[in-house]
């Protein structure tokens, strides 16, 4: 058994202080919030099939409407609705696609509405394509240069659910002049219920 207190030596003190300084230096200067935490962005256009590893995604059509007419209810836009028709085909297993938002040229983010039968998420398995219609209520100045961001991870908490995962960003192809025309239009869109995409007319009727 040792007797007496351990002596505080210059060598030990230097070791501890040096370790703390080295740790602080690493945390301060090594970019820990970039690289591995960023999602893998897959950019594309309307009609293009995007490979997200866990699914194939196609944004099939983009429309603008000031009114949504669903089966049970109708919804009037505060600004105007961007209606995005998309087709998901899972490639690994049953997958829930939670992430859906429109981003405008200024970086503002708009989340989907579930009014009038619009989808805010989709769920699909390998073996078939599943159709979903997302509706976003956006102001006039958000149309020009807007993109839609779709993924299996959620976009809450600064896209926390999409870190280190594939994310699709699709340019909606709306230019400044078209944005004015689209804003003036008074269209009514009836969102389709989610279902199999491109169902065969020659299939079984039982």
């Amino acid at each position: 058994m040792r007797h007496g207190r351990r002596r505080i030596t210059w060598k030990g003190t230097a070791l501890v202080v040096g370790g703390v300084v080295a740790g602080c230096t690493l945390v301060t200067y090594v970019p820990q919030d970039t690289g591995v935490d960023e999602p893998f962005i897959v950019e594309g256009a309307v009609g293009e099939v995007l490979d997200l590893t866990y699914a194939e995604l196609t944004v099939t059509e983009v429309r603008v409407a000031d009114t949504l007419a669903g089966v049970a209810e109708a919804a009037a836009a505060g600004g105007t609705f961007i209606v995005v028709d998309a087709s998901w085909r899972a490639t690994q297993g049953e997958t829930t696609f939670v992430g859906a938002e429109v981003t405008d040229a200024r970086g503002r983010r708009f989340w989907p509405t579930d009014q009038a039968g619009c989808s805010i998420l989709a769920k699909a398995q390998p073996g078939y394509a599943w159709r979903a219609t997302y509706c976003f209520d956006v102001p006039r100045d958000a149309l020009d240069g807007a993109t839609v961001r779709l993924a299996r991870g959620d976009q809450g908490e600064e896209h926390a659910g999409q870190r280190r995962d594939a994310v699709a960003v699709v340019d909606l192809g709306i230019s400044g002049r078209e944005a004015d025309e689209l804003w003036q239009a008074t269209e009514t869109v009836s969102p389709q219920e989610p279902g199999y995409a491109l169902a065969s007319a020659g299939g079984s009727e039982g």
């Binding site: 394509a129 199999y196 491109l198 169902a199 065969s200 007319a201 299939g203 079984s204 009727e205």
Partner: peptide, 18 residues
């Protein structure tokens, strides 16, 4: 090539590409 009628609901066809 065909799916039987379900216990309830509309008949289900085999989607294109499946």
């Amino acid at each position: 090539d065909r799916l039987p009628p379900p216990s309830w609901g509309d008949p289900v066809t085999i989607p294109d590409g499946s």
